Amino acid sequence: MEPVDQLPPVAPHECEAAAATARRIAENVRSAVQVQGRTLEHVLVALIAEGHVLMEDYPGVGKTALARALARSVDCQFARIQCTADLLPADVAGTNVYNQREGRFEFRPGPVFANVVIVDEINRASPRTQSGLLECMQERRVTVDVHTHELARPFLVLATQNPVEYEGTYPLPEAQVDRFMVRVSLGYPDLDHEVAMLGDHGMGDRVELLEPVVTAADVLAAQEVATRVQASQPLREYLVRLLARTREDARVDLGASPRAGLMLLRAAKARAMLYGRGHVEPDDVQALARPVLAHRLVLAPDAVGVGAAAVVADAIAAVPAL
């Protein structure tokens, strides 16, 4: 692979075609699910930037519906994993099964071999099963009995969890949380949207009625374009100063890692592409800093009443942009 700086720049028509792919997905999702534009943008950024999404919010606000709507909007394979305490890693990744007719073992792939994988209530799976997702999310492959199997592309994990009902759950360790490019919260809909949702209830499950509006090839093409979006040296330096600021904050025990910076840069490139630009601007970094960085920070025990999002916001305010 040639160095990033030597990749050919994005042509305007390539950027527009890739942005149009994202717009078609967004319009299709909105036709079935009431979701804030900023939240949907973050999910699309993760899809285009080859990341994964952790949706954390209260029960009944539409986390699973949003994940299903996105999965049905792309003409590719999708699977859903309902996490429970007795779910095993083999139930997720697959296992070798003995074929009596041929007298040999053959691999039976699990649901992670789909393009879009919905992992519902991920914190209800045991730590052993959660760890089974680490390799596939980071390296896009699965190793079973010393044999490595490549996953499909594009590959997106949409995981949900509730910040309440902790009984019978296993909090995600930092290593698992770090695999998610963005963490989003849907929040309660405003009055008008909730009234509209009740009016749509009589039509049944609108997500089931969705038809694909883009192909897997369209998504792969958009992802390739996003990798060629330019990020200048001053822009990269600005991003690193933001990371350093979180590490120096006295309220933080564990600041943003270099991998967090790589994730933020990839996400910023995808956002720039969505807005029809072939280069990253500070606004792209600032708009995505909280959903990309906040869930990676570990606050100090004495940081009472302070949230990770506030730490990221303070870093943005303290570090001058270009």
Rank of each mutant, 00 (worst) to 15 (best):
Val195His: 13
Ala65Asp: 09
Gly307Met: 11
Val207Gly: 04
Asn123Ser: 11
Tyr238Phe: 14
Val10Ser: 05
Arg101Glu: 15
Ala20Phe: 07
Met203Glu: 15
Ala318Trp: 10
Asn96Trp: 10
Gln34Glu: 13
Val97Trp: 00
Gln230Ile: 10
Leu198Gly: 11
Glu237Lys: 11
Ala49Leu: 08
Arg30Ile: 10
Ala175Asn: 10
Leu297Asn: 02
Arg128Thr: 08
Pro8Asp: 14
Ala90Asp: 08
Gln161Thr: 09
Leu322Lys: 06
Glu16Gln: 13
Leu70Val: 12
Leu288Cys: 06
Arg259Gly: 12
Asp75Trp: 03
His13Pro: 03
Leu239Ala: 15
Gln233His: 14
Ser257Met: 06
Glu121Gln: 05
Ala300Gly: 11
Glu248Arg: 15
Val43Ala: 14
Ala318Val: 10
Arg271Met: 11
Val285Ile: 15
Glu208Trp: 08
Arg241Asn: 11
Ala315Trp: 03
Cys76Gln: 09
Arg128Phe: 07
Ala308Asp: 08
Arg68His: 13
Leu293Val: 08
Arg183Thr: 12
Pro282Lys: 00
Ala65Glu: 13
Ala310Ser: 13
Ala49Tyr: 04
Cys15Trp: 05
Pro163Gln: 08
Thr148Phe: 03
Gln82Arg: 07
Ala303Tyr: 09
Leu134His: 10
Leu134Gln: 05
Gln138Leu: 07
Thr143Val: 10
Val92Ala: 03
Leu158Ala: 02
Val240Pro: 07
Gln36Pro: 00
Ala267Lys: 02
Ser232Ile: 07
